[in-house]
Every structure is written in structure tokens, then in C-alpha cells.
């Protein structure tokens, strides 16, 4: 897929009609509902964006380690969900997003374990926050498969975009996006913790 097509795909996804999460779109359930979930929940988009940008900020050798970590985390989360239960992980997702945004804004070299841990945690938390309410285990698995698929595609797109940002002004732009994401996440986290 070319970058141009990928951009168009994101435009179509993000400018589509409004939707309700956890039934995600009224009347759309199952795999399609799960597929739409990470695209329609702002906190999920923000987490995938910051994780993708951080992974893309690393060297090519580190990226080869970091990219497979997300599917591993997503699968681990599905196993956790089947064995235990989901919980509201929005606060944890926002905290993770704030950390990722701050690291992006700082733009300092990181040992691979730091983005690795963030990606693993992000994958698990995102899935725990995507469990559809009141449906069978089989339907839950189908929906979560869709969620995992679109989360992975979005993550890879953001990694690919970030890895291409070689010019100084582009790297400044990435730091600005990180700063904006961190500021938003910090504000909303504070609001949620207070109210």
C-alpha cells in the first residue's frame, strides 16, 4: 500500500459518520464493529498514534523488534480477557499516552526496552478497553479480532509515517504532535481522576 493510499484510507475512516462505542456503530457488531472501535475512540487513536510515532523514531533494527511486540500484546490481552474480565483502562491508556507524548517531545535516544514496554502495555490496555458489553465469548472473540486487526494496521501506518520523517522540520513536527498529545492526555486524565 502506498503512503498516498494509506492517507486516503485514514481520511475515509476518520471522516466517516459519528458512531457510538461499545456498540461502536449502532447496528454494526461483530468483526466490523470491532474493526471500527480503535478508529472511533479518540483515546485509542491517540495511543496508537503516539506508540507508532515513538516506534518510528527508533532505528530500523529496533523497529524490527518493536513492531511484532504489538500483535503479541494484543494476543496476550485476548487470552487475559477470555480467562478473566475486562476493566475500564481509559485512565491507564491516557497515562500511557502522556508518557509517550512526553518522550516524543523530548526526542532523546531511548533503550529499546522503553518503547518495547510501552507498546506491550499499550496493546494490552487497548484491548482491555475494547471488550464489547454483554455478548457471548465467541462474539467477543470475533469483535476483538477486528479490533486487533485495525489497531495493528493503524500502528504500522503510524510507524511507517514516523520512520520517513528525516528532515529537521519533520522531526520538530513529530515533537509538536507528541507535545499536543501529552497535553491533551494530561488534561483529560486530571479531569477523570478529579470527577
Amino acid at each position: 500500500m502506498t503512503l498516498r493510499r494509506a492517507a486516503l484510507a485514514i481520511v475515509f475512516c476518520m471522516t466517516s459518520a459519528s458512531a457510538q462505542a461499545h456498540t461502536v456503530v449502532a447496528g454494526v457488531g461483530g468483526f466490523a464493529g470491532g474493526l471500527l472501535h480503535p478508529l472511533l475512540v479518540p483515546a485509542h487513536v491517540l495511543v496508537l498514534l503516539t506508540l507508532g510515532l515513538i516506534a518510528g523514531q527508533q532505528s530500523a533494527a529496533h523497529r524490527r523488534i518493536l513492531i511484532p511486540l504489538l500483535p503479541v500484546a494484543l494476543i496476550a490481552a485476548v487470552i487475559l480477557i477470555v480467562r478473566a474480565a475486562a476493566f475500564d483502562s481509559q485512565n491507564s491508556l491516557l497515562a500511557l499516552c502522556a508518557i509517550c507524548g512526553l518522550l516524543l517531545a523530548l526526542a532523546r535516544p531511548l533503550p529499546v526496552i522503553v518503547p518495547g514496554a510501552l507498546i506491550a502495555a499499550g496493546g494490552v490496555l487497548l484491548m482491555l478497553d475494547s471488550v464489547p458489553a454483554l455478548i457471548s465469548v465467541q462474539d467477543t472473540l470475533v469483535a476483538l479480532t477486528g479490533t486487533a486487526f485495525s489497531a495493528l494496521v493503524l500502528f504500522i501506518l503510524f510507524v511507517a509515517l514516523s520512520a520517513r520523517l528525516n528532515q529537521p522540520w519533520q522531526q520538530t513536527g513529530r515533537r509538536i504532535v507528541g507535545s499536543w498529545a501529552a497535553a491533551s492526555a494530561i488534561l483529560v486524565l486530571a479531569l477523570r481522576l478529579v470527577k
Binding site: 492517507a7 472501535h37 475512540v41
Partner: peptide
């Protein structure tokens, strides 16, 4: 690359209100 950045900006400007997890 320029097209991609413009596309992302277009998303932000053109996106309707997101009612996901809406209150």
C-alpha cells in the same frame, strides 16, 4: 509525504463529532 500530512489535517478539520464513549 506532503499529501499524507495534508490528509491528516483534513481528517482533523473535517471529522464530525466523535460520540465514542460519549457523554
Amino acid at each position: 509525504m506532503r499529501f499524507f500530512i495534508l490528509a491528516v489535517i483534513a481528517c482533523g478539520v473535517a471529522a464530525g463529532p466523535a460520540f465514542a464513549h460519549s457523554e
